[in-house]
Nucleic acid binder design. Structure first.
Lengths: 185, 185
DNA sequence: GTCTATATTATGATAGAC
DNA sequence: GTCTATCATAATATAGAC
């Protein structure tokens, strides 16, 4: 084979990480096992340990994400921005995010990671919103989307099955707008 | 001691269930252990098994809840109803609910239970709302509140720490109203 | 470099002494 | 009826053969 060993290794590592993301996303941290990841990646379980050292480390690598490059937003843009996260423009919500969300309620490290991601999102939205309680309202917007995403992607609530993203966005838009604006008494 | 044995047993059982609710709520199904529950309830671990038979059964008993008695609601009442669930009128959100929510993403049975509770809530709200897509909008309202509750009670997002319930309700009300009404183009 | 075999640990569950 | 002792299982992690 003309494939250099470094390249082979890189590919194997990527296959393990993909498998890990799928299993962590489906089962959560506790129920996903090194053995299961290895089976899915078609490698030996010991190899997973060899490459990543521990289950903890494997999880961290699997859910690591590049934070979205930020630019300035106005209040209108903020709404569209969070609506856009409903489903990534093309393809699915990154598998790593699902893995993190699946575990965020039961695995302390995933919880910390989730808080960090949410916090960044809240910061970003708050900058685009007027008023003293901008951070609080930005938090509510962010958690609204978290709830929808959890219900849709993780709990797979019947009512949202197969509903096109555009329809969800259309229904949610006025609701999110109400959170950006100044008080509506 | 003048306490009849049946009464003693009943009290012990209640103490075990309380301990179980706390641990399941804090740690989730997987990380909570029979031994931990027993320690907190100050009984022998074997006694827990004696009473409940299995961890699974203990969990079911711990999260069992009496569904709220339902009466007719209008659209206005629906909003206030979901806002009321932010924090139960007095006292906290029932510990059993927290236990169920904590585990709903990683424990299949908790997930099923959560879907059922959410579905009931969605039904109830949908009846009070006009329009063809009432169920979908009711689902979005319900998931909005789920997101807020998860962020507040389970992830303990900084931005919501110590914010009085009334303020959350005030900020969320217009947003939820937007979901009840017919389309706002 | 890859895998076999195993150490270690923690759990849910059970059997039986008292 | 309550608890001691233990079984059985399954996991992460490691050591060492090949």
């Amino acid at each position: 084979m003309g494939v250099p060993r470094a390249e082979r290794r890189r590919r194997t590592e990527a296959r393990i990480l993909d498998a890990a993301r799928v299993l962590f996303a489906e089962l959560g941290y506790e129920r996903a096992t090194i053995r299961g990841v290895a089976r899915r990646a078609e490698v030996d379980p010991a190899l997973v340990m060899q490459y990543f050292g521990s289950k903890q480390e494997l999880f961290q690598q699997a859910v690591r994400m590049t934070p979205p490059a930020d630019g300035e937003l106005d209040a209108e843009g903020a709404v569209e921005h969070v609506l856009g996260s409903l489903t990534m423009k093309l393809g699915e919500l990154p598998q790593g995010s699902l893995a993190m969300m699946r575990s965020m309620l039961t695995h302390p490290e995933a919880a910390a990671s989730a808080r960090q991601v949410l916090s960044r999102q809240i910061d970003r939205l708050a900058e685009a919103m007027p008023g003293d309680d901008a951070r609080l309202r930005a938090a509510l917007m962010t958690l609204t989307m978290l709830g929808i995403t959890v219900g849709h992607q993780l709990l797979e609530i019947d009512e949202l099955r197969g509903v096109p993203q555009e329809e969800l966005a259309r229904l949610l838009r006025p609701s999110l707008r109400a959170l950006t604006g100044q008080e509506v008494s």
